[in-house]
Write a protein that binds this DNA or RNA. Structure first.
Lengths: 232, 232
DNA sequence: ATTACTAGCTTCCGAGTAC
DNA sequence: TGTACTCGGAAGCTAGTAA
């Protein structure tokens, strides 16, 4: 797909906007040149290239041609359009966090061990988290920003509860992928009550992430928080 | 807008998909080069260009840089994305017909004169049509295709009726613009009963189109049928 | 490690022009 | 008119390499 020259895509787009997706239209190399801010000669060359790649069809009409954009031509524009569109809207469907794996037992690991939470995790996430969280130190002090950004994202809410000893707060679990690995299920935890500094986040998973992902303390990791748009 | 190099737009899009719209990310010239199928050197040049045009910001981090896309950078991608998107979807919102102005009184002109229709035109289109239609001969025999294409488009229906003499069929009025002139209101007529050959269409307007548009018999005209998507 | 300069090569563009 | 060729110059790319 991406060996299509971009000038070609623009030229096809201009043709489409003249109605060449519907039917053959009258379009001269000069007029197309004007549209794409090139000379008649350059346009002519592009037209020949487009025809050779079957992005357009031409039929001779006297001294000039009538031109129509083929299905492949429309598809080429569609591909680039889609790529750019998803780039622009990327942040609305995911947020990328970069950080470093740190050692130590996080607060989350403590919570994981409590039966009142474990049942909910199994029921609502579909797995029992590995007893221990992956602790990630963010490179910069942007974690407050990140929390704001993912605030409206899809998450699974684990409710708080009380036992004889004390009251436990809720936990929000945001689905994430680690280092773009789509196979390994994982969730980022946001705790109602936390004593962490803001630059630390904790990840749970059914597996021992350091092993399944081959991570060691000090490694850089990329955490992608996904927003499915659904509300649970 | 269009003096932004397309390679730049692609490069920004790739950065956005790595999360650089949110925050500074680690991105080397080699990694960017790989993304855009260029060498490290070419990528370096592009990065410098992007920075000079304020499409990205960079902060030094050791030997490398951390990169973030600016608002202007996002806008540049958005502009191209929008342009391509509307090109792809062009045919869904409009159909362009090219033809030649011909002389003579069309069938439509006869209908225009009937009081049973005139009242409806005024009520439903908001104007009394000029007593006489612009007759346009289509360049090719594609008018059946065109009728199919605009079939689901928005139109105003003028109902048929009967008087002492005979029964008159319905008339569909499709909003059109002539030669991209958005100011002059006009409608293309599709008659239930017609004796025209298929290569002929008739246009009505509150004004005398040949005069208001400066058209003469034999002139080429571009008729754009617009689809607002509304159902009336 | 990286970035980014230079040299040389390739591609692209536009003026002139044949048809 | 139109299209599309050649050709000289401009721009872009990559390999090598300095910092």
């Amino acid at each position: 797909m991406q060996d299509v020259k971009l000038e070609y895509v623009i030229a096809i787009a201009k043709l489409l906007m003249k109605g060449a997706g519907e039917d053959f239209i009258n379009a001269t190399s000069s007029s197309i040149g004007t549209e794409i801010n090139k000379s008649q000669q350059a346009a002519s060359k592009i037209i020949i290239g487009l025809e050779n790649q079957d992005f357009i069809e031409r039929i001779k009409a006297g001294h000039s041609y009538r031109i129509r954009v083929t299905e492949a031509g429309v598809q080429a524009v569609k591909d680039v359009s889609t790529m750019l569109f998803s780039a622009v809207n990327y942040s609305k469907i995911r947020v990328v966090i970069e950080g470093t794996v740190v050692s130590g037992i996080g607060e989350g690991a403590y919570y994981m061990a409590l039966e009142g939470y474990r049942k909910q995790f199994a029921a609502r996430l579909g797995y029992f988290p590995y007893p221990g969280t992956l602790n990630v130190k963010l490179s910069r002090n942007h974690s407050i920003l990140i929390r704001e950004k993912i605030d409206h994202f899809t998450y699974v809410l684990i409710k708080g509860y009380s036992d004889a000893k004390r009251t436990y707060g809720w936990v929000k679990c945001y689905p994430v992928s680690i280092n773009d690995n789509a196979k390994i299920q994982a969730h980022l935890l946001v705790l109602e009550r936390t004593h962490h500094d803001d630059t630390m986040v904790e990840i749970i998973s059914p597996t021992y992430l350091k092993e399944s992902m081959g991570l060691s303390t000090g490694d850089k990791v990329k955490i992608t928080v996904l927003n499915s748009g659904q509300v649970r």
